[in-house]
Protein backbone atom coordinates (compact mmCIF):
# COMPACT_ATOMS: atom_id res chain seq x y z
CA UNK A 1 0.00 0.00 0.00
CA UNK A 2 2.89 2.36 0.82
CA UNK A 3 4.00 1.92 -2.82
CA UNK A 4 0.75 3.47 -4.04
CA UNK A 5 0.97 6.30 -1.47
CA UNK A 6 4.59 6.93 -2.50
CA UNK A 7 3.50 7.22 -6.13
CA UNK A 8 0.57 9.53 -5.38
CA UNK A 9 2.32 11.83 -2.89
CA UNK A 10 5.60 12.00 -4.84
CA UNK A 11 3.73 12.60 -8.08
CA UNK A 12 1.53 15.29 -6.54
CA UNK A 13 4.53 17.19 -5.12
CA UNK A 14 6.20 17.13 -8.56
CA UNK A 15 3.01 18.22 -10.32
CA UNK A 16 2.59 21.14 -7.88
CA UNK A 17 6.20 22.20 -8.48
CA UNK A 18 5.56 22.05 -12.23
CA UNK A 19 2.43 24.20 -11.91
CA UNK A 20 4.36 26.76 -9.85
CA UNK A 21 7.10 26.78 -12.53
CA UNK A 22 4.62 27.26 -15.38
CA UNK A 23 2.51 29.91 -13.65
CA UNK A 24 5.36 32.03 -12.25
CA UNK A 25 7.49 31.53 -15.42
CA UNK A 26 10.58 31.41 -13.23
CA UNK A 27 13.39 28.91 -13.83
CA UNK A 28 13.84 25.38 -12.44
CA UNK A 29 16.68 26.44 -10.09
CA UNK A 30 14.35 28.85 -8.24
CA UNK A 31 11.67 26.18 -7.89
CA UNK A 32 14.23 23.69 -6.54
CA UNK A 33 15.53 26.21 -3.99
CA UNK A 34 11.98 27.11 -2.94
CA UNK A 35 11.05 23.45 -2.58
CA UNK A 36 13.92 22.76 -0.17
CA UNK A 37 13.06 25.81 1.92
CA UNK A 38 9.36 24.91 1.91
CA UNK A 39 10.25 21.39 3.04
CA UNK A 40 12.19 22.85 5.98
CA UNK A 41 9.28 25.12 6.97
CA UNK A 42 6.70 22.30 6.73
CA UNK A 43 9.01 20.14 8.80
CA UNK A 44 9.29 22.85 11.46
CA UNK A 45 5.51 23.15 11.56
CA UNK A 46 5.37 19.43 12.26
CA UNK A 47 3.53 18.68 9.01
CA UNK A 48 6.19 16.91 6.99
CA UNK A 49 6.98 14.15 9.55
CA UNK A 50 3.48 12.63 9.29
CA UNK A 51 3.69 12.80 5.48
CA UNK A 52 6.91 10.77 5.58
CA UNK A 53 5.19 8.23 7.88
CA UNK A 54 2.35 8.01 5.38
CA UNK A 55 4.12 8.00 2.02
CA UNK A 56 7.69 6.87 2.79
CA UNK A 57 9.96 7.55 -0.16
CA UNK A 58 7.13 9.49 -1.82
CA UNK A 59 7.83 12.25 0.70
CA UNK A 60 11.60 11.80 1.24
CA UNK A 61 12.64 11.57 -2.45
CA UNK A 62 11.42 15.01 -3.67
CA UNK A 63 13.67 17.91 -2.62
CA UNK A 64 11.20 18.94 0.11
CA UNK A 65 12.39 15.81 1.88
CA UNK A 66 15.92 17.21 1.80
CA UNK A 67 14.72 20.26 3.73
CA UNK A 68 12.88 18.00 6.15
CA UNK A 69 16.02 15.90 6.76
CA UNK A 70 18.08 19.03 7.42
CA UNK A 71 15.61 20.20 10.08
CA UNK A 72 15.21 16.76 11.66
CA UNK A 73 18.98 16.34 11.89
CA UNK A 74 19.46 19.77 13.44
CA UNK A 75 16.72 19.21 16.00
CA UNK A 76 18.22 15.85 17.02
CA UNK A 77 21.69 17.33 17.46
CA UNK A 78 20.37 20.34 19.36
CA UNK A 79 18.79 17.92 21.81
CA UNK A 80 22.02 15.92 22.01
CA UNK A 81 24.69 18.64 21.94
CA UNK A 82 22.89 21.89 22.75
CA UNK A 83 23.06 24.96 20.51
CA UNK A 84 26.14 23.68 18.65
CA UNK A 85 23.92 21.00 17.16
CA UNK A 86 22.73 23.72 14.78
CA UNK A 87 26.12 23.44 13.11
CA UNK A 88 26.42 19.66 12.99
CA UNK A 89 22.95 18.20 12.58
CA UNK A 90 21.88 19.37 9.14
CA UNK A 91 24.68 18.02 7.04
CA UNK A 92 25.04 14.89 9.20
CA UNK A 93 21.49 13.89 8.38
CA UNK A 94 21.84 14.57 4.67
CA UNK A 95 25.41 13.31 4.24
CA UNK A 96 24.42 10.16 2.35
CA UNK A 97 22.86 12.16 -0.50
CA UNK A 98 25.57 14.83 -0.64
CA UNK A 99 28.49 12.41 -0.47
CA UNK A 100 26.88 10.24 -3.15
CA UNK A 101 26.40 13.33 -5.34
CA UNK A 102 30.09 14.26 -5.01
CA UNK A 103 31.40 10.72 -5.53
CA UNK A 104 29.13 9.74 -8.41
CA UNK A 105 29.21 13.22 -9.92
CA UNK A 106 32.97 13.08 -10.18
CA UNK A 107 32.94 9.47 -11.35
CA UNK A 108 30.44 10.15 -14.15
CA UNK A 109 32.44 13.16 -15.28
CA UNK A 110 35.49 10.89 -15.55
CA UNK A 111 33.60 8.16 -17.39
CA UNK A 112 31.29 10.06 -19.74
CA UNK A 113 31.23 13.06 -22.04
CA UNK A 114 28.15 15.24 -22.57
CA UNK A 115 26.21 14.33 -25.68
CA UNK A 116 24.54 17.70 -26.27
Amino acid sequence: MTLLYAFLVGGTLCALAQIVLDLTKTNPAFVMVSAVSLGAVLSGLGLYGPLVEFAGAGATTPLLGFGHSLVTGMMEDVVRLGWFGLFTGGLRATASGLMAAIVFGYLMAVLFNPKG
Partner: peptide, 18 residues
Protein backbone atom coordinates in the same frame (compact mmCIF):
# COMPACT_ATOMS: atom_id res chain seq x y z
CA UNK B 1 3.07 19.36 -18.05
CA UNK B 2 1.52 18.79 -14.63
CA UNK B 3 0.26 15.35 -15.63
CA UNK B 4 3.66 14.30 -17.01
CA UNK B 5 5.40 15.64 -13.89
CA UNK B 6 2.92 13.69 -11.75
CA UNK B 7 3.46 10.41 -13.59
CA UNK B 8 7.24 10.56 -13.93
CA UNK B 9 7.81 12.05 -10.45
CA UNK B 10 5.47 9.45 -8.98
CA UNK B 11 7.26 6.65 -10.80
CA UNK B 12 10.67 7.80 -9.50
CA UNK B 13 9.33 7.93 -5.94
CA UNK B 14 7.87 4.44 -6.37
CA UNK B 15 11.28 3.10 -7.41
CA UNK B 16 12.76 4.74 -4.30
CA UNK B 17 10.03 3.16 -2.15
CA UNK B 18 10.78 -0.29 -3.59
Amino acid sequence: NALLAFLVGGAICTVAQV
